[in-house]
């Protein structure tokens, strides 16, 4: 498979199948994220960088013996590790005995929201999610450092991306409001079903990317100029951080949402919503800035 475009598409299919597998393993949220990210963002980023680095791959010259050996050893260690594992899905496995039951029993009383995953994500292990948002922020920062926002010459307003496609432009014009609305639905729906700040941010960005693809990035940059995006991402993180720090002012430990309102339940609701909003803004800004940096760059041979 030496045509890297085909490899990128195959990778899209692979991550799609992984998302379907997650669905089957009862992981709705994770399937949602994997589909939005694996098939959507990664494929688009891959394609836009392949545009810059060339589509064809040369046959590697050196012999595959050493890699095979290393892979074999690691694989043997992994299989050795799996021998004592409990079977798939057996309820007696230690995993389901210790920490998890607490989440399932107490989440309704303490949080009052049906989606336990969002409850654990935003409140029980909120610090992990702050770390996760910072990882995304670091990625956006690194791509900004590497490719710079103004790189690749000034945006070419009005240059249509795919030649003359009047039909496509019309349909996309109708679709984009729907996509952005769907993203908003996912953002606010995080507590009741699959969804949340991170997936919503990605869908927002995909909507803008679609606009950029079809109408040429000149127009897209007029709508959301590239200069704002790093600041927007920073703003998203500060929203998250300030919700946490607010608890500090009241003498409660960091990220304790009960201080936000008298009744702790309402406080936690509010906290989770605010936090998800912060993540959504940050992810949207980062994904879009990475796409701009890659697609806006002129091809240097």
């Amino acid at each position: 498979m030496r045509d890297l475009f085909a490899v990128a598409m195959m990778f899209g299919i692979y991550s799609l199948l992984t998302a379907a597998l997650f669905m089957d393993l009862d992981a709705a949220d994770v399937a949602f994220t994997e589909a939005a990210v694996g098939a959507g963002v990664t494929t688009i980023l891959l394609l836009s960088s392949l545009r810059l680095t060339g589509r064809w791959e040369r046959r590697p010259k050196h012999s595959p013996l050493l890699p095979l050996l290393v892979v074999g050893v690691t694989g043997a260690a992994l299989v050795y590790g799996t021998l004592d594992m409990p079977h798939l899905g057996d309820p007696q496995a230690p995993v389901h005995q210790h920490v998890a039951p607490h989440y399932i029993e107490n989440a309704p009383q303490e949080m009052g929201i049906p989606n336990i995953v969002t409850a654990v994500l935003a409140s029980y292990r909120g610090f992990d999610t702050l770390g996760e948002t910072l990882v995304i922020f670091t990625a956006g920062l690194s791509v900004f450092l590497l490719l710079g926002s103004r790189a690749g010459g000034r945006p070419r307003p009005g240059k249509t991306a795919i030649g003359e496609q009047p039909v496509l432009r019309l349909v996309v014009k109708v679709l984009i409001p729907f996509i952005l609305l769907f993203a908003l639905y996912v953002q606010l729906h995080g507590e009741y079903g699959a969804g949340g700040g991170f997936q919503a941010g990605v869908i927002f960005a995909t909507g803008m990317v679609l606009y950029d693809l079809v109408f040429g990035e000149g127009d897209a940059r007029l709508v959301v100029p590239a200069r704002w995006l790093p600041r927007l991402a920073a703003f998203g993180i500060l929203v998250y951080g300030s919700v946490g720090l607010y608890a500090l002012l009241h003498g409660r430990p960091f990220l304790d949402y009960t201080v936000l309102a008298e009744d702790p339940m309402v406080g936690r609701h509010l906290g989770i919503l605010l936090v998800e909003l912060g993540i959504g803004i940050c992810v949207f800004a980062v994904v879009l800035s990475i796409f701009y940096a890659l697609s806006g760059r002129r091809r240097q041979p």
């Binding site: 030649g163 039909v167 496509l168 349909v171």
Partner: peptide, 17 residues
């Protein structure tokens, strides 16, 4: 509805491309 909107367009765009 979404499929009805996107699929014909995608096929059209592919053929044109």
């Amino acid at each position: 509805l979404f499929l009805l909107a996107t699929n014909p367009t995608a096929s059209h765009a592919m053929a044109k491309a």
